[in-house]
């Protein structure tokens, strides 16, 4: 431990507060807004789709296309997931196979 226990607790507290602000904020800000408010209603309908897109990019943000392995493990695995999911439509199969393919690729192929 680099920090004292009290300092550690304060850091943990800060990360918790920061996280909770981002989670509670929309519910507090729009508490009084009627659900038929058309702009907020529109956002809550379309944002789930944009948010998952942002989340996927967030997961893949550390890929480098300039240096080996050029994001190939991710591209191949996601390609397999898309194909498999369109073909079999089985959520757990797509996720499981995609993950195994990725692990094999990063552990044995692109090492």
């Amino acid at each position: 431990m680099t920090l004292t226990p009290v300092q550690t607790f304060i850091i943990i507290f800060m990360v918790t507060i920061g996280t909770m602000i981002t989670r509670f904020l929309p519910f507090l800000v729009f508490k009084g807004t009627r659900s038929n408010n058309s702009y907020i209603g529109y956002l809550s309908r379309v944002l789930p789709y944009s948010a998952i897109g942002l989340l996927i990019v967030f997961c893949l943000k550390d890929i480098s296309f300039k240096s080996p392995v050029y994001g190939l493990p991710e591209i191949i695995s996601i390609g397999c997931i898309i194909t498999l999911h369109y073909w079999k439509e089985n959520t757990l199969l797509s996720i499981g196979a995609g993950t195994v393919i990725y692990m094999v690729l990063v552990q044995f192929v692109f090492t």
Partner: peptide, 23 residues
């Protein structure tokens, strides 16, 4: 601690979208 708070807010700002989506 202040820097820890600010970095957390920045990294987790995406949660604001989740809240709006689930109102």
């Amino acid at each position: 601690p202040l820097y820890a708070l600010l970095m957390t807010l920045m990294i987790n700002a995406r949660h604001i979208f989740y809240g709006i989506s689930l109102l």
